[in-house]
């Protein structure tokens, strides 16, 4: 299974590296948000360092935008016949899902890293301590796995591109705003704060914030990491089950 995953992952990486422009395109949106939000809300919120507060949120946003494409490309592979070709071979079914999700997560990490560097160049105070960055990226990686798995799972259950893209869009913004990604909790109405408590994004954002912003808080990070690990495990299990039951 691991060897199968590696070979398929390798294939997806080759394809991605042959089309670097595509990866850059998905970066545009978070970059725009980074600039607009920093300029716009920076004055609005009156927090002295809104930029520092917001950067982890933008990183998470990059993950959501990036990983929601994974399901779309699965549908493309199904319609192109590539998935059938894999299924007719003895390759492990788990490896097919796993390789896709891993590929998406790695892609998202690279994008998040670029955003991080841009934000740093724009003057955000970010702890560039390699260990902190690494921990932050680990959390982002798990979140990326979780959302890529969700996207693949939805792709298999919905089986059409249009509703999948719609769900992706529909989920992304509310998930962002029902969390403390862009707005600190103290500005939230109670009901939004309540929702934010069950939103995994909240814990991801706070976890990332806890290592990248000063002061570093490893307890909050550990909580975020734990929740993300659980989230990734559950969604992955769901996606694999959905994929296995795909045989008509």
């Amino acid at each position: 299974m691991l060897a199968d995953t590696w070979h398929l992952f390798h294939k997806y990486m080759i394809i991605t590296l042959r089309m670097p422009l595509w990866s850059l395109f998905t970066l545009i949106q978070p970059l725009i948000w980074l600039i607009i939000f920093a300029q716009l809300f920076g004055h609005f919120v009156q927090a002295d360092r809104y930029m520092d507060f917001m950067v982890p949120g933008i990183l998470i946003m990059t993950v959501l935008f990036g990983s929601s494409w994974s399901g779309v490309s699965l549908l493309r592979e199904i319609s192109a016949g590539t998935v059938d070709k894999m299924l007719a071979s003895p390759v492990s079914r788990v490896a097919i899902v796993l390789s896709r999700v891993l590929h998406s997560a790695v892609q998202v990490i690279a994008q998040a890293f670029i955003i991080l560097v841009v934000a740093w160049l724009m003057g955000a105070t970010i702890s560039m301590n390699p260990i902190h960055v690494l921990l932050g990226m680990l959390l982002i990686f798990l979140l990326g796995i979780g959302f890529a798995a969700l996207s693949n799972g939805f792709a298999i259950t919905l089986q059409r591109e249009e509703p999948l893209v719609m769900i992706g869009n529909l989920m992304t913004l509310p998930l962002m705003f029902f969390s403390s990604a862009l707005v600190p909790e103290r500005f939230m109405p109670d009901w939004i704060e309540l929702i934010s408590l069950i939103n995994p994004i909240t814990y991801a954002v706070e976890g990332v914030r806890a290592v990248l912003a000063t002061p570093v808080d490893l307890t909050v990070f550990a909580r975020g990491l734990g929740i993300m690990a659980l989230f990734a495990a559950v969604t992955l299990a769901w996606a694999v089950t959905a994929f296995k039951s795909l045989r008509d």
Partner: peptide, 8 residues
């Protein structure tokens, strides 16, 4: 449907 990958 051809199962080959066009980008490879």
């Amino acid at each position: 449907k051809t199962g080959v990958d066009y980008f490879l």
